[in-house]
């Protein structure tokens, strides 16, 4: 069954306090050299064939991402 991966990230201009908190924790744990952390969401969908990518983009735009604050990428994974 085809697998579709959707990654949702906050737009660059939107503050990501969770990413900032992770970034703040890293030096305390001895992980140096990380300049920035942005946290997002990763969705994996199993869909019927044939894959209608336009329809899937509509799905992602309608529900998975809020276009006011987020952007998404969509990949149909090879079988």
């Amino acid at each position: 069954m085809p697998r579709v991966v959707v990654d949702v990230m906050l737009k660059p201009e939107i503050l990501d306090p969770q990413g900032s908190a992770i970034l703040g924790a890293l030096p305390r744990l001895g992980f140096d050299g990380v300049r920035s952390v942005r946290q997002g969401k990763h969705f994996e969908l199993e869909v019927d064939e044939p894959v209608d990518e336009a329809r899937l983009r509509e799905l992602a735009d309608t529900l998975l991402a809020n276009s006011v604050i987020e952007e998404f990428t969509l990949q149909v994974m090879p079988l």
């Binding site: 906050l10 939107i14 503050l15 306090p17 969770q18 908190a21 809020n66 006011v68 604050i69």
Partner: peptide
């Protein structure tokens, strides 16, 4: 209301978490 687009903008995680 924001998710419904009846109002503009969005509500996100409190800045101080």
């Amino acid at each position: 209301l924001c998710e419904s687009h009846l109002l503009p903008g969005a509500l996100t995680r409190n800045a101080h978490l």
